[in-house]
């Protein structure tokens, strides 16, 4: 799907913050994923039009990054960390348990479209091992029991306030008020040192 009218407005606001529009590629891919749950070909073509790149260039960028999905995934993406600190404290056993509970192998989605299970790399919460993320929201020191409880809560919709459906990462966006922002300009249109730098210092 192409970006909706509302999302195009958000996209233009994001693009306007960068000296070059292409820098907005990754944020706009997130926006597309938020809209559709995954990144579609139409969205990538549309992003290309917005940032001045071909759809192939956008695809090239998108496929480098693990968070972008190119086919539908579950409403809840469950990422279990398997790197060293978590592995030392039982992440492999947790993964086996998760596969058993959900009835799927890591890398696949449940038949009801609710859960996708993934093996993830270090999540920067190593002291709280083993860890997992559901749509990039943490759960720490996960046991088999707390895992089952989590899945039950998600199924029952009890965590809907904390954990948005897959596609939304941060629920708060940066907004730069028009009257406060300095504004981004292409680098080639700037040659002078910034106004607060003494000229003698700037030449150094």
């Amino acid at each position: 799907m192409r970006l909706s009218e509302d999302n195009v407005r958000v996209a233009l606001e994001i693009i306007g913050r960068y000296p070059r529009p292409r820098s907005a590629t990754i944020p706009l891919l997130h926006l597309a994923q938020q809209q559709d749950g995954y990144v579609t070909n139409e969205a990538m073509a549309h992003i290309g039009e917005l940032v001045g790149a071909t759809s192939a260039e956008v695809l090239g960028t998108a496929t480098f990054y693990e968070m972008f999905k190119f086919e539908p995934v579950g409403k809840y993406l469950v990422n279990i960390c398997g790197t060293m600190s978590c592995a030392l404290l039982g992440s492999e056993e947790l993964m086996h348990h998760a596969e058993h509970t959900l009835g799927i192998k890591a890398g696949s989605t449940t038949a009801d479209g609710l859960f996708t299970l993934e093996h993830a790399e270090c999540q920067a919460a190593c002291t709280e091992a083993p860890t997992l993320q559901v749509n990039y929201r943490y759960r720490f020191r996960v046991t088999n029991e707390t895992f089952d409880q989590l899945i039950e809560d998600l199924r029952a919709g009890r965590l809907a306030d904390e954990i948005p459906a897959h596609g939304t990462v941060a629920k708060i966006r940066q907004r730069i008020p028009a009257d406060k922002g300095v504004g981004a300009v292409p680098p080639e249109s700037v040659t002078a040192p910034p106004s607060w730098m003494p000229a003698a210092e700037a030449a150094k």
């Binding site: 913050r17 944020p27 997130h30 990054y65 990462v169 941060a170 940066q174 922002g181 300095v182 106004s195």
Partner: peptide, 15 residues
Amino acid sequence: QFSLDIVLHWGAGAY
């Protein structure tokens, strides 16, 4: 005299 924009940018999963 000091003017500055800080732009929040976020990645998409790549060590």
